[in-house]
């Protein structure tokens, strides 16, 4: 069975939810501890949401120095599928696996709401089960999710088609160009602020299962 590692930092909150989503998708979740120096035998890694190390310095700024992150960065260079959600996206930006930075929401308030997104890039390890242009609804819940980069970087991201998901029907945090999630050029590393793991069963989280295909995509890319 495909094994997907889920990192737990002190202060990680959605690690259990990602493990559940991985199970629902039909893979085996493998808990990874931040202090470990290797990711071990896993086929993909998810860096989940939360407030790693309290996010006291700057979101993700301490977590990037966690022992396990060096191994994640190393394997990401070899094509390991890596997904960063919310705080995980912030951490991937801090490690420079992805460009840009997430800053305080424009409203200055934390926001938790069901959010419509447009899927734009579907040849990544985490979105290949979506169709380009799909509209999905999954929740956002963050205080610092405003994607910021300089114009050259934004132009490059859009020019290369590296914007994976964009906010539709209203931008919840003031992200530049409504960017909700991006990938690296190879498409194995994806980071996004919204939480697909909270939209994988009808009963809980955002109604519907629009988020599930992030996880089944990883299976697909590993099998395929």
């Amino acid at each position: 069975m495909t094994k997907i590692g889920v990192i737990t930092f002190p202060g990680s909150l959605d690690d259990g939810d990602v493990q559940r989503a991985v199970r629902v998708a039909g893979a085996e979740p493998v808990p990874l501890w931040h202090a470990a120096t290797t990711i071990g035998e896993v086929d993909a890694v998810v860096v989940p949401g939360g407030f790693s190390y309290g996010d006291y310095l700057r979101c993700g700024a301490i977590a990037r120095f966690a022992p396990i992150m060096a191994d994640v960065v190393h394997h990401a260079g070899d094509g390991l599928p890596v997904l960063g959600i919310c705080n995980g996206f912030q951490i991937l930006c801090e490690t420079h696996l992805l460009p840009g930075v997430l800053t305080r929401n424009e409203s200055l308030h934390y926001v938790c709401r069901d959010q419509a997104l447009t899927v734009e890039r579907t040849d990544t390890a985490w979105t290949n089960e979506y169709e380009t242009g799909d509209r999905i609804v999954i929740p956002v819940k963050h205080g610092e999710g405003r994607y910021v980069a300089d114009d050259a970087t934004l132009d490059w991201l859009e020019g290369e088609g590296l914007v994976v998901v964009r906010y539709a029907d209203g931008n919840p945090n003031g992200s530049f160009r409504d960017i909700a999630g991006i990938s690296n050029e190879a498409g194995n590393v994806v980071g996004l602020m919204p939480h697909p793991e909270h939209a994988v069963e009808d009963l809980t989280g955002t109604p519907g299962t629009d988020g599930l295909r992030f996880f089944t995509s990883a299976l697909q890319s590993l099998v395929g």
Binding site: G16, D17, R20, H109, V111, C112, K141, E197, T204, G205
Partner: peptide, 28 residues
């Protein structure tokens, strides 16, 4: 007010404000 609170974390929230009561799944 309630949009400033995370109502989804832990993945067991079945009902939350403004529903009549908050409901949590205890046994998956």
């Amino acid at each position: 007010i309630t949009d400033q609170y995370d109502r989804y974390v832990r993945g067991n929230t079945v009902l939350a404000q403004p529903e009549d009561s908050g409901m949590i799944r205890v046994d998956e």
